[in-house]
Amino acid sequence: MNNSNLFSQTTLGPFTLKNRIVLPPLTRSRSSQPGDIANDLMAEYYAQRSGAGFMVTEGTQIEPRGQGYAWTPGIYSPAQIEGWKKVTSAVHAKGGVIFAQLWHVGRVSHTSLQPNAEAPVAPSAIAAKAVSVFIETEPGVGALAEPSQPRALTTAEVKQLVQLYAQAARNALEAGFDGVELHCANGYLINQFISEHSNQRTDEYGGNLKNRLRFLREVVAAVAEVVGPDRLGVRFAPLFESTKEDRVYLGLVETDPQATYVEAIRVLERAGVGYLSLAEADWDLAPELPSSFRQAVRDNFSGTIMYAGKYSAEKATRVLTDGFGDIFGFGRPFIANPDLPERLRNNWPLNDVDADTMYGGTDKGYSDYPVYQP
């Protein structure tokens, strides 16, 4: 299949993208300590991949309680803002467009990562199961651990969190980002509010689907007011089948996933959100999203639609040709191939990912992957 259409220009809000290949958010845990600060090494890594038509940073916690994994960067302190300026400057110097992914893990955390070793916060005091967090066991050494038992947020605290998202968006603009993406996927905080399994609140943020979507609506509105709706993206990860592999999604498979996510997408459409990112299951033999759902997405959302999750150039071209998607994230291939767009354009072979250097460490397995020498 000819994948030349992946190299056609397209628009995303006010931006003209040079191709439809996206560097999606990829946690790499390389921030400087103490302080979870973006650094020169991260600036080099993102600049190397600025051949992408569009780039989204790794998940970036909006406040100290939002962290669920060791050494992930934040965007709430002055030092963190200054650190991210190195990244945005390096990417813009290469002609790239980059958004910050605003992240709060909610209950998917551990007391050792929380201020004063307190319990993580969540919509309800229900622990996350069948998932691990990554904690620092001694300086520079990490290990997997079970998430800690969370406590339920008060109604007033939920409203305060909406404002923390808005402040993180202001910080992102100050750091030089072109816009922001809200991480509403993979069982993290906003997803926890949406899901019937993790949200058992009895206030205005719980109960029926409209109420479970209230936190999403309020965060989208608050952030859109800061950055403009056309510079805002939202990521969901709808899962339609429950399998042993859905631990990646923390088991949040709704009774009626299509109805849940189509209604969530309508929230974004009414707000004028610039793009919708759909993270598909990416394990071996994972089921694809149903075509009926892809069609419902297109029917209910008029902005740019992005898909990611074990995409090849051939699969992306097929979804593009079918009219279901506009831009496509390539995760693991972009980790190992900083020049991925050129490799795909020319059908050059791809480097393999070094699984041992995915999280934490040095430039090894991060910024030292070679470009192709024809």
Rank of each mutant, 00 (worst) to 15 (best):
G272M: 06
S312N: 10
M306W: 01
D322M: 12
F324D: 12
A296Y: 00
F330I: 12
D322K: 03
F324K: 03
S291Q: 09
E288P: 04
T317E: 15
F328D: 06
P287A: 05
A316S: 14
A281F: 05
F293S: 10
S277M: 05
F330H: 08
D284W: 01
E280L: 07
A281Q: 13
I305L: 11
V273A: 05
K310E: 11
V297I: 15
T304W: 00
D282P: 01
S302D: 14
A286R: 00
E269I: 09
K315Y: 00
G309M: 07
V319F: 02
T317S: 15
G329A: 03
W283G: 13
P290D: 08
P287I: 03
M306S: 12
E288R: 13
A296K: 05
G309Y: 04
D322R: 06
W283D: 05
D326N: 13
I327K: 02
E280N: 08
F324Y: 14
Y307A: 14
V319I: 04
V273T: 09
A308C: 14
D284Q: 05
G309C: 07
D284I: 09
R270I: 08
D322Y: 00
A313M: 08
L320W: 04
T304F: 01
S302I: 00
V273W: 03
R298T: 08
L278Q: 04
A279Y: 01
N300G: 03
A316T: 07
E280V: 10
G309I: 08
D326P: 11
S277A: 12
T321I: 00
G329V: 03
F328M: 06
R270F: 01
D299W: 04
L276V: 10
V297L: 12
T321C: 10
E314I: 06
A286N: 03
F324I: 10
K310C: 11
G272C: 12
F330P: 10
I327Y: 04
T304D: 05
L289N: 07
V297S: 08
V297K: 03
R298P: 12
I327M: 05
R270E: 15
F330A: 07
G272E: 07
W283T: 02
W283L: 10
D299C: 08
V273R: 02
D322N: 09
V297D: 11
T304K: 02
D299T: 08
S302W: 01
S291L: 12
A279T: 13
G303C: 10
N300I: 09
E280F: 00
G309N: 06
R318G: 15
G303F: 02
F301Y: 08
S312L: 14
L320F: 13
Y307P: 13
Y311C: 04
P290N: 02
N300S: 07
E314K: 06
A308T: 15
I305V: 15
S312D: 05
V297E: 05
T317L: 14
I327L: 10
R298M: 09
L320H: 05
E269L: 11
G329T: 02
A313P: 14
P290F: 02
L276I: 11
V319G: 04
R294D: 07
A271F: 01
S312P: 09
I327E: 06
F330W: 04
G309F: 03
N300K: 03
